[in-house]
Amino acid sequence: MTQQQNWREKLSDEEYRVCREAGTERPFSGALLDETRDGMYLCKCCSAPLFPADAKFDAGCGWPSFYKQADSDNVGYRDDDSLMMRRIEIFCKQCDAHLGHVFPDGPKPTGQRYCVNSVSMTFEPQQGDKVEG
């Protein structure tokens, strides 16, 4: 079985489109947009820790936004010249899953806004927090 077939079996159609084909979910549609509990946001594909919940903020852009990553070994950067504009794509360094983009208009102390697709992450609540659903 190829790696592509493995991802197709593991991920929903929307997760595959976003994570493996660098798609984007519709703004204000993601399940993690309004998540407010303490915990960690993990890569949907490989469970690498990506963003701590205490770094999340409401940027009003329609996607979960963070001002810092959990571990610099897990989030990578590359130029994205699609859509006739220059952006910086962020991806999981462990499995190459597309996460979203980073912009230089975030809050202090980093000034970064990691704009991330909900479907490219799972949320692991801090122990003691109830999992809703």
Results as ranks from 00 to 15, higher is better:
Gly76Phe: 02
Met85Thr: 14
Val18Phe: 03
Cys45Trp: 03
Ala48Trp: 02
Cys46Ile: 12
Val102Gly: 01
Lys93Glu: 09
Arg87Ser: 07
Thr36Ser: 14
Gln94Val: 15
Ser47Asp: 15
Met84Phe: 13
Gln94Trp: 05
Cys19Gly: 05
Glu35Lys: 10
Gln94Asp: 13
Gly100Ala: 08
Val18Lys: 01
Lys10Leu: 12
Val75Asp: 01
Tyr77Met: 13
Ser72Leu: 11
Ser29Asp: 09
Thr24Tyr: 01
Ala59Gly: 15
Glu14Tyr: 05
Ala97His: 02
Glu9Cys: 05
Gly76Val: 03
Phe51Pro: 00
Ala48Gln: 04
Ala22Tyr: 03
Glu25Cys: 03
Gly76Ser: 09
Gly39Glu: 05
Ala22Gly: 05
Asp13His: 13
Ser82Ile: 08
Lys10Arg: 14
Leu83Pro: 00
Asp81Thr: 13
Lys56Val: 03
Met85Arg: 12
Ala48Arg: 00
Glu9Ser: 11
Ile88Arg: 04
Phe91Ser: 00
Cys19Asn: 05
Cys45Leu: 12
Tyr16Leu: 13
Glu89Asn: 08
Pro64Cys: 07
Cys45Ile: 06
Cys61Ser: 14
His98Phe: 04
Asp96Thr: 13
Asp71Gln: 10
Pro49Cys: 10
Gly30Lys: 01
Glu21Phe: 09
Lys10Tyr: 05
Arg87Gln: 12
Val75Ala: 01
Lys10Gly: 04
Leu99Ala: 01
Ser29Cys: 08
Asp80Pro: 01
Pro64Met: 08
Cys43Met: 06
Leu83Asn: 10
Glu21Ala: 13
Arg20Ile: 10
Trp63Ile: 00
Asp80Glu: 04
Asp79Ile: 06
Pro27Thr: 12
Asp34Trp: 07
Ser47Lys: 14
Asp34Ser: 11
Glu15Ile: 02
Asp38Met: 09
Pro64Val: 07
His98Lys: 05
Glu14Phe: 06
Arg78Ile: 04
Cys61Val: 12
Glu21Leu: 15
Glu15Thr: 03
Asp34Gly: 08
Ser72Phe: 07
Arg87Val: 09
Asp34Ala: 13
Ser29Arg: 07
Pro27Ser: 11
Glu9Met: 09
Leu50Gln: 03
Cys46Lys: 11
Asp79Asn: 13
Ala70Ser: 14
Gly62Pro: 01
Ile88Leu: 12
Gly39Asn: 09
Glu35Leu: 11
Arg86Asp: 11
Leu32Val: 10
Tyr16Met: 10
Glu9Gln: 14
Pro52Val: 05
Met40Trp: 06
Gly30Asn: 02
